[in-house]
Computed example of a mutant assay.
Amino acid sequence: MYKGKRTLFYNGEILVDLMIDEDDGRDDERYLIYDQNERQSWEVIIVLPGVEEIPSDTFFGCENVKTVIMADTVRRIEWRAFAGCERLVFVRLSLTLEFIASSAFQECYSLVSIFIPPSCEEIRDYAFGGCQKLIIFNVPHHTQLGENVIARTALLKVTSFKTNEWGEYFENTEEVNQWIKNINQGEDYELHRACSSFNPLVEAIYGIVKQRGLCSFQKKNQIGLTALDYLVANPYVEKEIDQKLLMKRYVMEMMGEAV
């Protein structure tokens, strides 16, 4: 149990045997350790230290999982590893993660935000396709993105990029991928970047607020999100950064300067 929720502490075991039917080419899964009822009981997945890879289909279709927390030893997430986790809302990825395979988080309908660590070199096709509520997709500039990584997401819907009838953007892949990486670029969004970093520091955030004023917390970027939206969603905030305390500190200092 983790915070009173049914939890799997994952140690890297192979949980699923994926077999391909030679007659029709369709895949079939065989559960090796936990049956379907047990898999559907999990609400939290905690990946233990030492695990370096989440194999294909490991948590595919675990519909009641809401939280995934990875130790910082995980380097690869393979094909459909978390696909179909329909109630998944919180993911903390490993800070040494290098690779996210195709469809790894496809159709995680409840996922609103994902923060890709600087270590990640590649995210392949449809990795987050069909994540209907996904609006925060924080990704480093150097990370190579495949095709349709954010197809059929809330993030794609706020753009003017053309899609086909299935919500795919094959013809605009390069433009979409560049747009994703530049959402919070520019001087006006310095606070957004600080709040979505992988080591959000109170002093760094306060320094920007002091320079730009309290209104900087409520300034919206091109997709309608504030710096505070990123800060609240950021899974790498080690301790809560209290906006009210920052505001109080700002006001007190301004009053002191006025005196």
Rank of each mutant, 00 (worst) to 15 (best):
Y126V: 04
I77V: 12
S197H: 06
E63A: 10
F170A: 11
F90R: 12
M252D: 15
M255I: 13
K66Y: 04
S113T: 03
Q222D: 10
R249E: 14
H192T: 08
Y250P: 05
Q218T: 13
E107K: 07
C131W: 01
L231K: 03
K162E: 15
L231H: 03
E52W: 01
E63M: 04
R124D: 15
V65C: 07
V16Q: 02
K133P: 00
I205H: 00
M247I: 14
C62L: 03
A227P: 15
E52Q: 15
E52C: 11
I46S: 03
Y31W: 14
L191E: 01
P55C: 10
G224H: 09
E257W: 00
Q36A: 12
G12K: 04
C131H: 03
E38H: 01
N177G: 08
M1V: 13
L214Q: 06
Q36N: 11
Y169G: 05
T159F: 04
D72T: 04
G213S: 11
D17W: 00
I136T: 01
E175I: 08
E53K: 14
G186C: 09
N64R: 11
I136A: 00
V74S: 03
G61T: 06
D28N: 11
Q144T: 14
I136E: 10
I33L: 15
N234A: 09
I180C: 06
E122C: 09
L214M: 11
P117W: 09
V158G: 04
Y169V: 05
T159Q: 07
D24Y: 06
Q40W: 12
N37S: 14
A83T: 02
D188V: 01
A194I: 09
R87S: 15
F137M: 07
L48F: 02
L231P: 02
K5D: 06
C195P: 05
C215H: 09
V149E: 04
G4S: 05
N199T: 11
A154W: 02
L32E: 02
K181M: 05
K157W: 04
W42P: 00
C62H: 08
A81C: 09
A204V: 14
S103G: 01
I123R: 04
E122Q: 14
E174W: 06
L225D: 05
K3P: 00
V202F: 13
